[in-house]
Design a protein around this nucleic acid. Sequence first.
DNA 1: TATTGTTATACTCTATAACTATA
DNA 2: TATAGTTATAGAGTATAACAATA
Lengths: 189, 189
Amino acid sequence: MGKRVSDEELADPGQVAPIRVGPGFRVEFPGCDPAAAEIAANLVRLSSAFLEEVDRRRRGIANLSASGFEALAVLDGADEPLTASVIAARLLVTSASSTSLIDTLARRGYVVRLPHAGDRRKVLVQITDAGRVVVDRVLPVVHAAATDAFEAVPPAQRDTVLEACTRARTRLVELAAQDVPTPGPRVRP
Amino acid sequence: MGKRVSDEELADPGQVAPIRVGPGFRVEFPGCDPAAAEIAANLVRLSSAFLEEVDRRRRGIANLSASGFEALAVLDGADEPLTASVIAARLLVTSASSTSLIDTLARRGYVVRLPHAGDRRKVLVQITDAGRVVVDRVLPVVHAAATDAFEAVPPAQRDTVLEACTRARTRLVELAAQDVPTPGPRVRP
DNA sequence: TATTGTTATACTCTATAACTATA
DNA sequence: TATAGTTATAGAGTATAACAATA
């Protein structure tokens, strides 16, 4: 039978409303800001909807994961072969994951491994012509999806969104350097 | 040796700047909007940074994937047992993935499977007390992370961000219903 | 000794397809 | 026949740990 789509998936009546939290939020989660929760929920939902659309458009181009496309784009943009560890760092994955990702790309003929002249422990990963063809087809698809999705946002709102994103990311960089805080308990409704 | 962190990860000088596209964008990707590309990049980056922080805070609570936590939250919020297919629909996964997810949750004692009284093909999934304990610990962590990350966004900007998110999501719902467009070619710089 | 990359192990998640038991 | 859920299969991704070659 394979993939089945259940009832709920068809429930969207064409109207998209902002995700809001209920009126009991402040009581249920003392010390938490309902407006912040709403911003977070809406941003995450939007990001995943956008990535889904990108993925849908990308599907026909090559059978690669998001990381696979990203690695190719990084290699194409670098204009020179990169070591496995540099790729791992750019993609924020472990060296082991990087190895398996490069394995996949090499198996498909999108990259080749070259010995590093100066340091024979290192491996240089070079994008092939076939890999460049994939990048040339993928990047326009991604940017077209962005254009289609965000041209609905008026220019006046764009700077505000960019600034808000930057503020929040700045805060997240700080938070990541701190210990995990213990939040107050949930007060069940 | 295990997980190693490479040089580049330490490269952040404490300053977070908006992600911008280069001046050659319009030439390289004809018909695409550089401002849209910037919005998209910044939103996706922010969303993933936020989810990473949530994941970091969530790690100590239970050894579950994001889908695992989400499924528990859905079951907790529903206030009644849900069928496997309803869970699959809420989480936007296939019925097969739902089965394996429920397997994992059941193995850990966070849910139990019950027979459905009316329709013996169906399986009801019920959250256990142990599962509720996990939800009670996870939700405050998520909302605290949102509060910490987004309190840096001034209230005046919040409504704008929410509105922009909703506009873009509306557009993405429309796009998802259309055929994948063929974008113009990339003009290599 | 430290570092680079690979391998080994184990688990999760994904998708598709076939299968069962019901309806 | 159609539906609900499971199982089978195959692939990709994750993390941790151990390892060989090289520095």
